[in-house]
């Protein structure tokens, strides 16, 4: 009862964001590679494709905005070797806008051939 009341008092935007999240979350296999800080606000990582090209690991991730409001995503890939150690200096953070209901693909390439695994670090802003 109490939570309902609280939800009602909050803005419509947040209702939408929270309502959309459980309906269509990031698939568990992909979620294992995603380090999300805070709320996703309706943004999910729909798919992640990891390919070794010419001895170098490459990745593509589809970020999908499941709500109608625009979102801003901050992300970067962190590359790991077989021991789980970080490879290289770490990428710079990137800012990307996602329009309502848009799907955008982000790409990255490992800095050298010792990278065997990765993590997508991200957080979502509501504007």
């Amino acid at each position: 009862m109490k939570s309902l009341l609280l939800a009602a008092t909050l803005g419509c935007m947040t209702c939408l964001a929270h309502a959309a999240q459980p309906a269509n979350p990031t698939p568990p296999a992909v979620a294992a590679k995603v380090a999300l800080r805070g709320e996703p606000y309706g943004v999910r990582v729909a798919e992640m494709r990891i390919v070794r090209k010419n001895d170098i690991l490459t990745v593509q991730a589809d970020l999908e905005n499941t709500v109608r409001a625009n979102r801003t995503v901050f992300y970067r890939f962190r590359w790991l070797d077989d021991m789980g150690n970080q490879v290289g200096d770490g990428e710079s953070w990137k800012q990307m806008g996602l329009y309502g209901l848009q799907l955008q693909t982000v790409k990255s390439v490992a800095p050298n051939s010792s990278a065997t695994d990765l993590k997508l670090e991200m957080n979502v802003e509501q504007k």
Binding site: E91, W93, K94, Q95, P111
Partner: peptide, 30 residues
């Protein structure tokens, strides 16, 4: 590595993003 948004002149993040894209592209072509 933070996204620098102080002014919209060419900044550190632009430099890093350009370098990352170019090296990534060069390395993956083999």
């Amino acid at each position: 590595k933070a996204v620098e948004l102080v002014t919209n002149e060419f900044g550190s993040t632009d430099l890093q993003m350009i370098a990352e894209k170019m090296t990534g592209s060069l390395l993956e072509t083999g």
